[in-house]
Amino acid sequence: MATLNPYLSFRTEARQAMEFYRSVLGGDLDITVFGEFPDMVQDLDQADLVMHAQLTTPDGLVLMASDTPDGMPFDAPQGFSVSLSGNSQAKTQHVWDALSEGGSITMPLDTPPWGGTFGMLVDRFGVPWMLHGDPE
């Protein structure tokens, strides 16, 4: 079975971001650091950077991320949003409140013409989100 999952790139904040997302969305978080593969480490000061992190939520959502060591080019991702939909309006409000703390709201969570609730924000880690709560 094929899957399509968001894979977020960070310079050095992947662990903090993924632990934050686990606190918001719940689930199991697995983290592998570059230091677990000695051939992958070019700078010992960066051995604890995240080579791969995967958050799997009880709802079956999968979010992945990694850090980008100094020896690799890094451009902050742009032109995308992580879209979370299919939740109740109450759960959407809970996730919205958590993700928006320390972030910036692009479009306030409100009732769109198609019903339910919808809003857009950029979280404290610079990741853009679109949240939609189903009509009740």
Rank of each mutant, 00 (worst) to 15 (best):
M1Y: 13
M1A: 14
A2R: 15
N5I: 13
P6H: 05
Y7D: 03
Y7T: 05
S9V: 10
F10H: 07
E13N: 13
R15V: 12
Y21A: 00
Y21K: 00
R22N: 04
R22S: 02
S23G: 10
D28F: 12
L29S: 10
D30Q: 14
I31D: 07
V33W: 11
V33H: 06
F34Y: 11
G35M: 02
P38W: 00
V41H: 09
V41P: 05
Q42F: 12
D45N: 15
V50W: 08
V50H: 05
M51K: 05
Q54T: 07
G60Y: 04
G60I: 12
G60L: 05
V62C: 06
D67L: 01
T68Y: 10
P69I: 02
D70N: 08
P73A: 01
A76M: 12
P77F: 09
G79E: 09
G79F: 07
S81N: 15
S81Y: 14
D97T: 06
S100L: 03
G102E: 10
I105L: 04
M107C: 08
P108A: 10
L109R: 03
D110I: 11
D110M: 13
P113R: 09
G115W: 12
T117L: 13
G119A: 05
G119I: 05
M120N: 03
L121Y: 12
L121C: 12
D123L: 00
R124Y: 03
R124A: 09
G126S: 08
M130A: 04
L131P: 13
L131H: 05
E136Y: 08
